[in-house]
Design a protein around this nucleic acid. Structure first.
Lengths: 340, 340
DNA sequence: TCGATTTGTCGATACGTATCGACGATGCGC
DNA sequence: GCGCATCGTCGATACGTATCGACAAATCGA
């Protein structure tokens, strides 16, 4: 493998000049730059990452803590990761995976070894065990998800509270008086994931504000279970029923359960789901959705950490970014008693 | 951050002794080792990855090339990645992501910069553009998926040919004379993904061997499309129909389409699917599946590359590992005319 | 025109670990 | 008791890049 010294020799300059050509930290004459760049190209030179990290004390690598258990539709986690990795590359950073298998010490390890310059923590829970750890780490971190105690942290997430609010408001605007929230699966709720709470808060807020009654149907794992939950919700609903399904897996099940009960979204009931556009459009009746734009969250998270790293002075003492959800009208809602 | 020199000073030994304690490459007396280990613990010493990589010429990092487009149920890719990362850690390796955004040059970059010691390439296609690139790379690679030209490569994948064979044989054994293969989605086939071909080969082989007629239904993206495909297949089937759904997304749709046509798996038709156990068991009628054990594939891939790296001499000139699929009988098959 | 600044380059050194050669101490066979 | 291999440790050096101080040349302002 060629080194910067080889490049220097070929170009007839010193090694330090080669370094300055790469970093641009000192002025270089056009002529010299050209000679060096030609030499680099000729030798297919690539700077050694280890040496670079050693000398500069920065690895140009960001650690990405990925979740062990998957709340979200698992595919969407993959999307997060892809986008994060691709976005990081645009700022000349690479992504190193940190799994939950090592526990929070995994984070201490990659930072301690100076393998990474900063961290992005995915799927942060309400009382996440990783939070106290990263507080004591000498590198910046960005959290995706919002822990209970988030003073002094940089967090980003979809605005679940607003999403809950928007769902209820939208259904109220259509004329629904009772709305059933198909809840997350027990397992998720039990883990105190924060965004569930936030979504609920938004739903409750809007419910109080616009005077809509909200029923809670537990999230079920099987179709049979979902059918039972739906039936129960129907019993307690006056007028045309409306459902909010904030978990993709449940949206799927809900639609199927409704179909089995002979109910067509957009004709007999209203359904607002939170799922990918793909899933929504694959349904017989395309679903109206509240979208969470995972790409947007990922990109912003990367930009935040990159800014922290390239310009530490600009690092805010605390940041809490909420990404506005997007409401997409499709065909699964109905006006029980058209206004106008 | 403490360095090995700090540890040496505290323990009253030389820096090289600290290094030998860590690597075990020279005998160290029990007494000295203890002193050094205590000092390391006291200082919470972690060796600097960059310096280590520079001196040893190995980064202890494996590059993982992740797919840009997702054939498999996207969630399962996430599973691959998690397991690969966790398994790598067990051999003291970390995982660096390489996305397709950079194209095959991304692989050249991470290797050229000596960021990684080896590569795992996921989701390898029949004529994958990355294959010619890795052939010229000075580090070992392991491919998940099998390209057309695989001489001199180390590949691993699920044994799709055997899977196709097993599906047909199983249905034949039950007594079916006609079997419908719900094919992959056009997009996947068009990309010449190799495993589709291999699955077909297995199906054809078994079909010829046991004298079962095989119909092909195109994979559809919508329920309506799937219903049409199923109806067409039914027309051309004599006796009780049987379906093979080798793609998880299609399995889902197939079951729904059958339900809409009033057909119950295990009562009116036989269905063998390839999907996760979770999905299979969530169905009203738990699906009999052919399982591809992604964990097994991931673990083996990591073990292969780690072996290549730790003992280069043991590297085989070529390897083609096929993981045997697992047939799980549940409730979605039926004997048209019981034999015995 | 001269001093002051800027431009462009070089040499030397630091970064933290791994590893090689050297060397005294220890154990072994006889 | 002697030669010899092994054990256990140290000092020195290499790994490849970034960066600092130095310095000559070019540019500028008055």
């Amino acid at each position: 493998m060629p080194t910067s010294k080889d490049v220097a020799r070929l170009a007839g300059v010193s090694q330090s000049t080669v370094s300055y050509v790469m970093s641009g930290r000192r002025p270089i004459s056009e002529k010299t730059r050209k000679r060096v760049e030609d030499a680099m190209a000729q030798l297919a030179f690539q700077p050694n990452a280890g040496a670079r990290a050693l000398a500069s004390r920065r690895s140009q690598v960001i650690g990405l803590a990925i979740p062990f258990v998957f709340d979200l539709h698992r595919g969407s986690i993959m999307e997060f990761i892809s986008v994060i990795a691709a976005t990081a590359r645009q700022s000349d950073y690479d992504i190193l995976l940190v799994t939950d298998d090592e526990g929070p010490q995994g984070l201490e390890r990659v930072v301690g070894q100076q393998l990474v310059d900063g961290l992005i923590i995915m799927q942060v829970e309400g009382d996440d065990a990783r939070v106290p750890v990263i507080r004591n780490l000498p590198v910046p971190s960005v959290l995706i998800g919002i822990p209970e105690k988030h003073e002094g942290l940089e967090c980003i997430d979809a605005d679940f509270e607003l999403a809950g609010q928007m769902c209820v408001e939208e259904l109220a605007k259509l004329g629904h008086e009772t709305v059933t929230l198909v809840d997350w699966q027990d397992e998720v709720i039990r883990r105190h994931v924060n965004y569930v709470k936030r979504f609920h808060r938004g739903v409750d807020k809007a419910s109080a504000a616009v005077g809509v009654k909200v029923l809670h149907a537990p999230g079920r794992v099987t179709i049979a279970g979902m059918e039972k939950a739906v039936a129960k919700a129907l019993e307690r609903t006056k007028g045309i029923p409306a459902f909010i399904a904030p978990e993709a897996a449940n949206a799927d099940l809900l639609v199927e359960a409704l179909a089995n009960l002979g109910l067509v979204p957009g004709r007999d009931v209203s359904v607002v789901a939170n799922c990918s556009d793909g899933l929504a459009e694959r349904q017989r009746i395309p679903l109206t959705t509240i979208g969470f734009e995972p790409d947007e969250v990922s990109r912003r998270a990367v930009h935040m950490i990159v800014r922290d790293l390239t310009d530490p002075a600009s690092r805010p003492p605390e940041a809490l970014e909420l990404i506005r959800p997007v409401f997409k009208h499709r065909k699964s809602t109905i006006r029980p008693r058209p206004k106008r």
